[in-house]
């Protein structure tokens, strides 16, 4: 015999101002943290990244990419040198953490259609899980970066302890971008076709193939209008040159991340109820 509770266990009512109750949503999101970890683990396992060979590929792949770009820099006559290769490798790895998060995040809601149509859960877990996957792919490259750093004889200092802070900031930024990309893809399914071009453009506008210091004075505006610029420049300063981070860059990176996160989550939450009828 079922109990006869005096009050209902759950009440469904229209959203206020188009948004779900935020406290309850945050609680429900936190309760699904296991889902995010399990999703990331299962995805990496399915792609064979759970094995040693798979993890080696995770390391070799960006390393080859860095080698190709370094070759390109030498061919076009840019200044070479160990610090240049270190900068290229370090920033490229971090850049791919962000773009992998955006690319996979874009498809997260549409590819989770069956789950969305069948279960009640905060949909925000889907793009967040993709950011976690991108992060888990990034972690092995940190080991490679450490090895390269040592082989190249690049400096070490206590300023390098800022690295975890920058990684957290980058994850915050990457998750915000993944959330935004996932919504755009619900309404415009061909948006993901544009992502490779978007990603390539972003690479050229960011201090990866060049350093912020070598940037032409006429292009200094990129340092402010490109949200990736302060993150990658700070990463290079802290991890490659072992210098203290520029506070302006840190503040800019935090500002951009907060702005994109606020915009992204607001649009996501206000549109989330539509997902089940749009996908």
């Amino acid at each position: 015999m079922k109990p006869d509770p005096a009050s209902p266990s759950v009440i469904y009512q229209p959203f206020t101002h188009g948004l779900p109750p935020l406290g309850g949503y945050a609680k429900s999101l936190w309760a699904r943290r296991e889902f995010i970890f399990e999703y990331a683990r299962a995805d990496l396992h399915q792609k064979q990244y759970g094995s040693i060979l798979g993890q080696i590929w995770l390391v070799i792949n960006p390393l080859i990419l860095a080698g190709v770009y370094y070759l390109l820099l030498i061919i076009i006559g840019a200044r070479g040198g160990p610090d240049r290769f270190g900068h290229l490798t370090g920033t490229l790895f971090l850049f791919y953490l962000i773009t992998n998060s955006i690319t996979a995040g874009a498809k997260s809601v549409t590819s989770g259609a069956k789950l969305i149509l069948n279960a009640s859960f905060p949909r925000l877990v889907l793009p967040l899980a993709e950011t976690l996957i991108a992060f888990m792919k990034f972690v092995p490259t940190l080991v490679v970066l450490f090895v390269i750093h040592t082989i190249l004889g690049l400096p070490y200092s206590l300023h390098m302890l800022w690295a975890p802070v920058i990684i957290v900031l980058t994850l915050f930024f990457a998750a915000s971008c993944a959330i935004l990309a996932s919504i755009i893809n619900v309404y415009f399914r061909d948006a993901q076709n544009l992502l490779p071009y978007f990603s390539r453009t972003l690479l050229y506008l960011s201090p990866v193939l060049y350093t912020a210091q070598s940037l032409d004075a006429n292009l200094n505006f990129l340092k402010v209008i490109n949200p990736l610029f302060p993150i990658l420049d700070t990463w290079s300063a802290v991890v490659i040159r072992a210098e203290a981070p520029d506070p302006t860059n840190l503040l800019l990176a935090l500002g951009y991340s907060l702005f994109l996160f606020s915009i992204g989550t607001f649009i996501f939450l206000s549109r989330e109820r539509e997902f089940a009828v749009r996908i």
Binding site: S9, I11, Y12, P14, N118, S120, R273
Partner: peptide
């Protein structure tokens, strides 16, 4: 709506127990 997948536009749904869909 009963299972909480789609929030209602108007009205109210009270569920007295655990739902599985």
């Amino acid at each position: 709506v009963i299972s909480g997948i789609l929030p209602p536009t108007s009205g109210r749904v009270e569920v007295f127990g655990k739902v599985s869909t």
